[in-house]
Amino acid sequence: MSQEKNTVATAIFYRQVRDFVAKTPVWGMAIRYQTKPDERFDMTLISRRIYGRPDEFLVVMAAAGLDSVEQELPEQLLVLPTESQLLTLKTAARFGNFG
């Protein structure tokens, strides 16, 4: 897959996670996670703690509303998609299933 399509899929996925966060009501199905001080500059820690793997840092970044991985993550309550919701978002964005 070309870099351009990969970039487009990444942007779509990021937007979908942002929309998920904005539209999920307090009682809605989602993972709620209070960030910790040791995660300020390492979103892979949250990814590992929530999803069991470090590679979902983009989900964390989008949920926190950050523009880059270099930005400091303030302590806050994140609303994150469950594994099944995450798979649905990735499939819709064609993110991660290149080939």
Score class of each variant (00 low, 15 high):
Phe57Gln: 15
Pro25His: 10
Ser68Val: 01
Asp67Cys: 05
Ile50Phe: 08
Gly99Leu: 11
Lys23Tyr: 05
Leu87Pro: 05
Ile12Val: 15
Thr7Arg: 15
Val21Ile: 10
Arg94His: 15
Gly99Glu: 14
Leu58Tyr: 03
Gln34Met: 12
Trp27Glu: 15
Val69Lys: 02
Ile50Asn: 07
Glu75His: 10
Arg53Thr: 11
Lys90Ile: 03
Asn6Asp: 06
Ala30Gly: 11
Ile46Ala: 11
Val60Ala: 05
Ala22Thr: 10
Thr91Gly: 10
Val69Phe: 01
Asp55Leu: 07
Pro37Glu: 01
Leu89His: 02
Gly28His: 01
Met1Ala: 12
Gln71His: 02
Leu89Lys: 01
Ile12Arg: 15
Ile46Arg: 04
Lys5Gly: 03
Leu87Asp: 15
Gly52Cys: 05
Arg32Asp: 06
Leu45Pro: 01
Arg32Pro: 09
Val59Leu: 06
Val60Leu: 08
Phe41Asp: 02
Asp42Ile: 00
Arg48Gln: 14
Tyr51Lys: 10
Arg18Ala: 07
Leu77Cys: 11
Thr10Gly: 12
Asp38Phe: 02
Tyr33Ala: 07
Pro74Arg: 07
Thr10Leu: 10
Glu72Leu: 03
Ala63Arg: 00
Gly96Leu: 08
Thr44Ile: 00
Ala63Val: 08
Val69Ala: 11
Leu89Val: 03
Gly65Ile: 06
Gly65Leu: 07
Leu73Gln: 03
Glu39Ile: 04
Gln85Trp: 01
Thr7Phe: 11
Ala92Met: 11
Arg15Met: 08
Leu58Asp: 13
Pro81Met: 05
Gln16Met: 10
Glu75Pro: 11
Leu45Ile: 10
Ile46Leu: 09
Val8Ala: 13
Met43Pro: 00
Phe98Asp: 13
Leu73Phe: 11
Val79Gly: 12
Leu78Asp: 04
Tyr33Trp: 10
Ser2Asp: 15
Leu78Phe: 02
Arg32Asn: 06
Lys5Phe: 06
Leu58Lys: 14
Gln85Tyr: 00
Ala64Pro: 13
Val21Thr: 10
Lys5Ile: 08
Arg18Ile: 12
Phe41Val: 01
Gln16Arg: 14
Pro37His: 00
Thr88Leu: 12
Leu78Thr: 07
Val21Met: 08
Lys23Arg: 15
Ser84Asn: 05
Val59His: 01
Lys5Leu: 13
Trp27Gly: 09
Phe41Ile: 00
Glu4Ser: 13
Gln71Gly: 01
Leu87Thr: 13
Phe95Gly: 04
Glu75Gly: 11
Phe98Ile: 07
Leu87Lys: 15
Asp19Glu: 12
Val8Met: 09
Ser2Tyr: 10
Leu89Gln: 02
Glu4Arg: 13
Phe41Tyr: 12
Pro37Asn: 02
Leu66Trp: 03
Ala93Thr: 09
Gln76Trp: 08
Pro81Gln: 04
Asp19Val: 07
Ala92Arg: 15
Gly28Ala: 15
Met61Phe: 04
Asp67Phe: 01
Thr24Gln: 08
Arg15Cys: 07
Lys5Ser: 11
Asp19His: 09
Thr88Gly: 12
Ser2Pro: 14
Arg53Cys: 09
Asp19Pro: 01
Leu58His: 10
Gln71Ser: 01
Ser47Pro: 12
Val69Asn: 02
Ser84Tyr: 02
Ser68Phe: 00
Leu45Tyr: 04
Phe13Pro: 13
Asp38Gln: 09
Leu80Ser: 06
